[in-house]
Amino acid sequence: MPLLEIDDLTVEFKTASGQFRAVDGVSLTVDRGEILAIVGESGSGKSVAMLAVMGLLPWTATVSAKTLAFDGRDLLTLSPRERRKVIGKDMAMIFQEPMSSLNPCFTVGYQIGESLKVHLGLSKSERRKRSIELLEAVGIPDPERRLSAFPHQLSGGMSQRVMIAIALACRPKLIIADEPTTALDVTIQAQILELLVSLQRETDTGLVLITHDMGVVAETAERVSVHYAGQKIEEQPVGPLFADPHHPYTAALLAALPERAKGKHLPSIPGVVPGQFDRPPACLFEPRCRFATDRCRTKVPPRQGAIAGFALCHYPLTHGRPIGHPNPEGREVAA
């Protein structure tokens, strides 16, 4: 049984102008000790999907799924109280903005110790000991002194290390890292990522890494899930994905990389992700797809099998050629 199993997860927000579907039928699994990367342009619902797993969405959100199970427990039927015993303990999340993710009014030591107290019931001295251990593990020099530091006295990189320490505090089975390095300096990014991955290896936790950075994906992930407008449009192990993308969106992403896999951010493809009001009726990528046909405009694309990377497409690519397409050369999208 996978550590995290998501089947057909949908999240809708109540907005002033009606329901907005931010996550649309996403299915994912993560195993113990595995790194799954989730990539996709801004607004593709990556964060919302993972916040739904954590149960951290605001009340305006409606979450539905066929399965939402973690470590053998059904998260859908878990009471809020029971769920709070899971998150922050067995399942932890790290956010994009380390500087604003720590409470400015409490010391580093307090914020690490809080999880230890609430979940593990450690005594004050045990908490202190474990906190020092954790700060050491995340590479913070002079940990004893740092315990009494306030967040504003830390740099962005240091804050993210503290966030990682908090996430690791109760030895979780799964860590969800939502763009953990985006807000940091380039030099620090690599360090934080390395730290995260090495700690993940040591402790055999599952890691979901949400990122914009194809370079990060190539270097760290084992499997990659590509998201577009709330849908998962392709999923493959990292090697095959880079070698032979099956969905036109993935292919376009990779083709637009300046030097394959080395670009720092998601390359731009002409056009934008559809929002609440301009959702295409069938394939959501259709307005931007160079292979789009009438069928793509009228018929919702099927989910392909594992061989075609679970691509959500009428004409999945094989080595760049759309299978079953009336005109395999495609058209050029007007920029």
Binding site: M54, L56, R83, R84, K85, V86, I87, G88, K89, A92, M93, F95, E97, S100, S101, L102, N103, P104, F106, E114, S115, V118, H119, M163, I166
Partner: peptide, 20 residues
């Protein structure tokens, strides 16, 4: 963000709102 962090720790709503 730090309120979300507090909730992500699995703290009770009372602790998140009344304390953090």
């Amino acid at each position: 963000d730090y309120v979300r962090t507090a909730r992500a720790k699995g703290l009770s709503p009372f602790r998140v709102v009344g304390f953090h």
